[in-house]
Design a protein around this nucleic acid. Structure first.
Length: 828
RNA sequence: GCCCGAGUGGUGGAAUGGUAUACACGAAGGACUUAAAAUCCUUUGAGCGAAAGUUCAUGUGGGUUCGACUCCCGCCUCGGGCACCA
């Protein structure tokens, strides 16, 4: 028999699968559907990462198993190909980004095919294909028509190196997520998407989906719902009030001053009333170039400027309050204004620094008298009362008129009700989530399909004129002004107004690379449709996605955005209402694959593992098995090339056992039992993403099998039926080798098109069990018993044995704990 | 500061209240070989013991339990996320 040679067999089976179209998903099938989705990659020049291989293989195993279970499986792949790295490469080398993209996607595709991934390549998509981004643009127009896209001058994060506006979500530690340059603030007219109007639904509907709990928690935290009140502080001498959002209305009676964010609109509106306006504007300028993270850094010295000449009234006490500006108050949280008192550390520090009066109105809860803590509580209370220490938690109200004596939680609704009768307050839910900056001043993105006409304002491009194709240019670098390079092409920019046909100008900004990934899971359903983003019947059949896997890092960006866009498409009936408004039924995430030694893989560290090298040396099946075996799927895991060899040995062992002389007339019953236990274990483990233990259980089976081959009684091997069953459960993991052995064993058709085997319950049932005998919880003996023996029978047997007699001696038996078929514990 | 994970042999890890260390790597010894590689066999948590055995070990200190890697409380370390979110 020939030696195992992955180079020879892998290509052969890959070609066969492709030519027979065995992984094609069928629209309009009567079969049950199963839509498995893994995040489509950005086709970088570095090629496929072993981390990609891990999650793609894991879900390939599920896809192959589902097919064997009789489902019509959709497991597609595509390219999220717009983005900066490609553009930067193009700028550097002067090659058109589409050429680079073509090269990279070709490489990625062939790497995936070499791994034997069972994607349906007939449905491959590419976000940079005009036939695809026509619909990305169409969605933008729908957002605009429904009032969810608007252009506004906002203070945005500006990366001076990339010359690009960044969403808050893309700023990490005050630095550009992509290039690491310190982010500045800059005023810019930007297209914004109103994701905030979906905040409530995006939280509430999480209850209807099966996501990992940590994913739900992270999304909820990101959206950041908080319940509180909107309070009006009327300004003395003018018909004006300042709105303040607070979750601590219970502290309103101690409010002694108001703080505005430096960018608050009140300052602009009442410039001439503010006596020290120069000083205030200077403070605002200084704050502009400080990142939010720095502004709100705990260790930073608190600064502020009083708005001289401005006074507001506390709606609860009717007392006058001075108004200050401080940069720790942020423009985009709540209303950009807070009332300040002794119950907030920043307020407290600021008041101490500038000699602003302070007052307290919350008494810390006291422990029961006589208890150890009562003294400390009394001490804290004295300090709080004397304004020596800031108490931020909830407690009991005092100094609060008719609300004295109430607990914070009770007082809150009562105070809101009381103030609202006077027209000063109302309940309000506030969200941390901000609208999404959707403009990029770049070449390599979808052109925003909008036209500006002096007479008609912003007009969307007519649907029949979509897609607005990216024009071919020679220089891809953003203009020095920070505008997109498209702004330099006069012929393209100048156009006519879709409304009045007068002269007009195109929008030259492009979309962020999240735009294409918002809805890609819909395009797979009907990728060649040129009338709609996907046909209703296809959407109705396939959606929602049954299982979506991706990185934790996309939880608050892509995953949230795509849920939002799907809800929007559902609202405007681009998605049939029967489908529901959540795109993904189930969401899991994989752990990152780190370099050897546990550090992140990166080119600069030189520790990048190229899957091609591993495939060349050991074969794709070995790589697949190793990626599954290396550790728990959901956890971060370091790569260990040494460990790969064990997986290759495993595969070779199976190949040799199956193709040599180990196929017998009838499998020994004990071995069949191990096999059926393995069938059960592998099936369950795959469903729970426990691929590592699925592989190890197959290894255990193979060890048992090979031991039979050597047994002195001459019992050896598996019979044909059992060999077939084992190959079936193995085939999702090591599909090429399983296919080869399947064929060599003379089985008909393809192994990957077989039925997933059922295990025999009766066979697995244990006839005897190893009973653990403990004395005082320590293992003292192990006895083989028949399953189902009662406590009495076991007691009798155990207490009779010489060994136990000796160990117990004359001691009194206090208690006996018995776990059927497992354990008996004698307490003496 | 808050939220979510994790901490087990030389290494990756297994075990979710009942034999701690499955499976794999590595290491040591052996077989085969002129030799090496490959392969196969044996051993491999630590200590004490000639052996039968026995004691100690799952970051750390307590607790619950007949019994705890597993549950509860406190602490330490590492990773990830968020951040004076009013």
């Amino acid at each position: 028999m020939a030696k195992y040679n992955p180079k020879k067999i892998e290509k052969k089976w890959q070609d066969k699968w492709l030519s027979q179209g065995v992984f094609k998903a069928k629209n309009g099938s009567k079969k049950r559907k199963y839509y498995l989705l893994v995040e489509f990659p950005y086709p970088s020049g570095d090629g496929l990462h072993v981390g990609h291989c891990r999650s793609f293989t894991a879900f390939d195993i599920i896809a192959r198993k589902r097919r064997m279970q009789g489902y019509n499986v959709l497991y597609p792949m595509g390219w999220d190909a717009f983005g900066l790295p490609t553009e930067n490469y193009a700028i550097k080398k002067g090659v058109h980004p589409s050429v680079v993209t073509q090269k990279n996607t070709d490489n990625f595709r062939s790497q995936m095919q070499n791994l034997g991934l069972s994607f349906d390549w007939n449905r491959e998509i590419n976000t940079t294909d005009p036939k695809y981004y026509k619909w990305t643009q169409w969605i933008f127009i729908k957002l605009f028509e429904n009032g969810l896209a608007y252009k506004t001058k906002t203070s945005i994060n500006w990366c001076p190196k990339d010359k690009i506006g960044l969403a808050n979500e893309e700023v990490v530690d005050g630095k550009c997520e992509r290039c690491g340059t310190k982010v500045e603030k800059r005023e810019k007219d930007q297209w914004m998407i109103k994701i905030t109007s979906y905040a409530e639904r995006l939280i509430k509907d999480l209850d209807t989906v099966n996501y990992l709990e940590k994913i739900k928690i992270q999304q909820k935290d990101w959206i950041g719902e908080s319940h509180g009140a909107l309070v009006k502080f009327f300004v003395e001498g003018v018909e004006e009030h300042i709105d303040v959002f607070t979750t601590r209305i219970d502290t309103i009676f101690s409010g002694t001053f108001l703080i505005l964010a430096p960018g608050h609109g009140f300052i602009d509106k009442y410039k001439n009333k503010i006596e020290n306006i120069e000083e205030v504007l200077k403070y605002r300028e200084d704050a502009k170039n400080v990142s939010d993270a720095d502004r709100t850094n705990q260790d930073k010295e608190i600064t502020g400027v009083q708005l001289k000449g401005i006074v507001v009234r506390n709606p609860a006490t009717n007392e006058e309050m001075p108004v200050w500006v401080a940069d720790f108050v942020l423009e985009h949280y709540g209303t950009g204004a807070v009332f300040a008192d002794a119950h907030d550390k920043r307020d407290f520090k600021m008041a101490k620094k500038y000699g602003i009066p302070l007052r307290t109105s919350i008494r810390p809860p006291a422990s029961a008298e006589g208890s150890g803590e009562a003294k400390d509580d009394e001490l804290l209370w004295q300090k709080v009362k004397n304004l020596e220490e800031c108490f931020e938690e909830e407690g009991t109200l005092y100094n609060s008129q008719q609300f004295d004596g109430l607990k914070s939680a009770e007082a809150k609704p009562q105070i809101i009700a009381w103030l609202s009768t006077k027209g000063f307050a109302q309940p309000r839910i506030s969200y941390k989530l901000r609208d999404w900056v959707f403009s990029r001043q770049h070449y390599w993105g979808e052109p925003i399909p909008m036209i500006f006409c002096k007479k008609c304002g912003w007009q969307p491009v007519k649907e029949k004129d979509l897609p607005i194709k990216l024009p071919n240019i020679k220089k891809y670098k953003p203009a020095e002004t920070g505008e997109s390079p498209l702004s330099l092409i006069k012929k393209w920019v100048e156009t006519e107004c879709p409304n009045c046909k007068g002269p007009a100008r195109r929008e030259t900004d492009t979309m962020p690379n999240w735009a294409g990934s918002n809805w890609y899971y819909l395009r797979y359903l009907d990728p060649k449709n040129n009338k709609k983003l996907a046909d209703d019947s296809a959407i109705r059949y396939w959606m929602p996605v049954d299982w979506y896997n991706g990185g934790m890092e996309h939880t608050t960006l892509h995953l949230l955005y795509s849920r939002f866009i799907f809800k929007f498409l559902w609202d405007i009936k681009a998605v049939p209402s029967a489908v529901g408004s959540e795109p993904y039924k189930k969401r899991t995430s994989h752990g990152m694959v780190l370099g050897e030694g546990g550090i992140k893989m990166s080119k600069s560290r030189g520790n990048v593992i190229n899957p091609d090298t591993i495939i060349k040396q050991y074969g794709a099946d070995t790589l697949r098995i190793y990626e599954m075996f290396m550790g728990p799927f959901e956890q971060m895991i370091p790569w260990d090339t040494k460990g790969v060899i064990g997986c290759r040995r495993f595969i070779e062992k199976i190949y040799n056992l199956a193709t040599q002389k180990n196929v017998v007339v009838k499998t020994d019953e004990a071995l069949r039992k191990v096999l059926h236990k393995t069938i059960r274990k592998v099936g369950e483990d795959v469903e729970n993403l426990k691929f590592n233990t699925a592989v190890s259980s197959m290894m255990e089976f193979v060890n048992a099998w090979s031991a039979y081959g050597r047994s002195p009684e001459g019992r050896q091997g598996l019979d044909k039926r059992d060999l077939a069953d084992f190959l079936r459960i193995l085939s999702p993991f090591a599909p090429h080798m399983a296919e080869e052995v399947w064929a060599l064993s003379g089985f008909k058709e393809l192994c990957c098109q077989q039925k997933w085997p059922k295990y025999d319950e009766r066979l697995i049932e244990e006839k005897s069990a190893l009973l653990i005998v403990q004395i005082n919880g320590k293992v003292r003996d192990k006895v083989e018993i028949k399953t189902g023996m009662t406590q009495k029978e076991v007691e009798k047997m155990v207490l009779k044995s010489e060994k136990m007699k000796a160990l117990i001696g004359g001691a009194e038996v206090k208690k006996i704990v018995f776990v059927p078929n497992k354990l008996i514990n004698i307490v003496i």
